[in-house]
């Protein structure tokens, strides 16, 4: 059993990486009061930009990830101009961004359908990788997976311990008060939204250049939406988001190891499991209205103009 379980747990971390990046980005944006339903679209744009950069430059994932981040940020900029500067409905703008991202990535992706990339070799952490069992699970991962965990620590620290974190949260809880004290509410929301875009772009580029290094149309396959659901599940708390991402990473990876684990279910059922789990998790967390009200950034989704 153990020899089957180690690859499952190790794979869980990789499968969780795009959810960690995209989820943390969305979490920061939502903490400032901006709900961006365009995560799926930004991830797709990041995925194709990252893939194109990696393939055309020959630089592989190292070129792909920054390109994905920039592309995701540009996509988020369009959303921000519409929903922050022009106060358009955030839900509709996010949806538009997703529809646009699906179309744009499919359009550009036509040129790259038959390409494949080398991917990234796992990076062993010297010393730690030799710890029995744990070492092969935690310390034999691709570098981006470690980067995701570092990003988590930084986001946790900034939100929890710094003045910047306090400012982000203040803008999300009480934009009028923050404005009255003299903080640039719109600028801060722009920053958080663009950060969300960059994170989603990296998540997408990770999928297309590292996780499955080839281009497939619509390859993000709903992970952007799952990331949004994870933020709700996490009640806007980064640590719970990390745990949620691992949980979903595990559910996602299950279909590839089902046979080894002796699970005899139709492959489509296992493939549908992450989406089913998202619904279940949303129901479980949302039914406690008080818990949500307590943690929900007070101005979430409400257009604000000075």
């Amino acid at each position: 059993m153990l020899e089957h379980l180690i690859p499952v747990l190790a794979g869980t971390l990789g499968a969780a990486t795009p959810l960690i990046f995209a989820g943390l980005g969305e979490l920061v944006a939502e903490r400032t009061g901006v709900i961006n339903l365009g995560v799926e679209g930004m991830m797709l744009i990041g995925a194709i930009a990252g893939f194109a950069a990696a393939a055309d430059s020959g630089g592989g994932a190292l070129a792909g990830l920054p390109a994905g981040a920039v592309a995701g940020m540009l996509a988020a900029l369009v959303f921000a101009v519409l929903s922050l500067s022009m106060a358009a409905n955030q839900a509709a703008c996010g949806l538009a961004l997703t529809i646009f991202g699906v179309g744009l990535s499919a359009f550009i992706g036509q040129h790259y359908v038959s390409f494949s990339l080398p991917g990234l070799q796992p990076l062993d952490i010297p010393g730690l990788v030799d710890i029995p069992v744990i070492g092969r699970i935690l310390f034999h991962q691709d570098p981006v997976t470690y980067l995701g965990l570092i990003t988590f620590v930084i986001v946790w620290w900034v939100l929890r311990k710094t003045r910047l974190g306090l400012l982000l949260k203040a803008v999300g809880e009480a934009p009028d008060a923050a404005h009255a004290i003299g903080y640039p509410v719109i600028a801060i929301r722009y920053g958080a939204t663009l950060f969300g875009g960059a994170m989603a772009g990296i998540a997408g580029a990770y999928l297309s250049t590292v996780y499955t290094p080839l281009w497939v149309q619509n390859m993000v396959a709903g992970r952007g939406w799952i990331a949004i659901a994870l933020v709700v599940f996490a009640t806007w708390n980064p640590t719970r988001l990390l745990l949620g991402a691992w949980l979903f990473g595990g559910v996602t990876i299950l279909q590839f190891h089902a046979q080894g684990l002796g699970i005899a279910l139709p492959v489509q059922f296992l493939a549908a499991l992450p989406y089913l789990a998202t619904v279940v998790v949303l129901v479980l967390i949302s039914r406690d209205k008080r818990l949500l009200q307590l943690n929900l950034p007070a101005s979430l989704g409400k257009p604000w103009m000075p």
Partner: peptide, 26 residues
């Protein structure tokens, strides 16, 4: 041209619509 150009136009159309709709209220 790739058929995906339809999806691209659809997305653009919705974006522009949301942008121009702002001027209904502002």
């Amino acid at each position: 041209l790739p058929a995906a150009i339809t999806g691209l136009f659809q997305g653009m159309l919705l974006f522009f619509l949301l942008g121009t709709d702002v001027f209904v209220d502002y």
